[in-house]
């Protein structure tokens, strides 16, 4: 019995020590995907880069914490946060009710909208469920776009990809009749890349709150409310003092915070 109690005490101490770094965090881990240009991607020298990364690094600076960047596949990005592989996700994640069941979000750091992409001259005009029946439509799996296709085009032949890059590649290869993606990366892809030259943006932007939620936010674990508030404070700061605009202008010609041209 004596040993039992000793062991229990030892175990408790061990747990307390293990819990310390999370509590007294002066070093945080930032989780992102790294396959979603221009928001987050791996650059030529193998480092994570992009709008999300720049914003994240700037927020860490404002919070006076050291941040380590962690790349994680999209499918496992929320489970990874819950498993404490990193402390917050800044990966162009839309704030949706479905995700709010698992994690908390900061205020949005940019506005959310999705769009359709089709091969040039395909002449797709009927965006009703009937019009899309039998069409091959692609999106990245586990995204709001995938949820959108499944719900709105139930009779389409749905193809889901691990990354947006793979979906883009199959679009360029001519396997898809239509793709649904985030507005900015889609515009970026069709206008700036060789592969994307095959295709064009079609139809109206999708801004239905049911699918795009309340904008794009930073996800934290539900219990980490202090971190969420610190991130919100830092975000308000960089929005107010022009740092956000500087980062925005580095990547985009429109203001992504409002999705409007300035």
């Amino acid at each position: 019995m004596k040993y039992g109690r000793l062991m229990a005490a030892g175990l408790a101490m061990g747990l307390a020590v293990a819990a310390l770094p999370a509590g007294a965090a002066d070093k945080l881990k930032l989780g992102t995907e790294g396959a979603f240009p221009p928001f987050n991607y791996i650059d030529a020298s193998g480092n994570l880069a992009g709008f999300d990364i720049d914003i994240g690094v700037e927020l860490c600076k404002r919070m006076e914490v050291e941040c380590e960047l962690v790349a994680q596949d999209w499918d496992g990005i929320i489970p990874g946060l819950l498993a404490k592989k990193y402390d917050f996700i800044i990966a162009s994640m839309f704030i949706t009710d479905e995700r709010k069941k698992q994690v908390s979000f900061t205020d949005p750091y940019y506005a959310a909208a999705m769009t359709h992409v089709a091969p040039k001259g395909a002449g797709i005009t009927d965006f009703s469920a009937e019009g899309m029946a039998g069409k091959v439509i692609g999106a990245q799996s586990g995204t709001t776009q995938a949820a959108f296709i499944e719900k709105v085009y139930p009779d389409a032949d749905i193809r889901l990809y691990g990354t947006q890059d793979e979906a883009n590649l199959d679009m360029a290869n001519g396997r898809l009749d239509l793709m649904v993606g985030d507005v900015i990366p889609s515009v970026d892809w069709v206008s700036k890349t060789d592969d994307g030259a095959c295709c064009e943006i079609v139809g109206e932007p999708i801004t239905d709150r049911e699918f795009v939620g309340d904008g794009t936010g930073i996800a934290v674990r539900k219990e980490d409310n202090a971190l969420r508030e610190n991130l919100n404070k830092a975000l308000a700061e960089i929005l107010a003092d022009g740092t956000y605009k500087k980062i925005n202008d580095k990547y985009f010609t429109i203001n992504v915070y409002t999705m409007k041209a300035e």
Partner: peptide, 22 residues
């Protein structure tokens, strides 16, 4: 499943991405 075929693994990944339930 990695080339978009909905075999058992593909369906499982889809279910996981909706529920986040291991």
């Amino acid at each position: 499943s990695v080339v978009t075929v909905f075999d058992l693994m593909g369906q499982t990944r889809l279910i996981f991405s909706k529920t986040f339930d291991l």
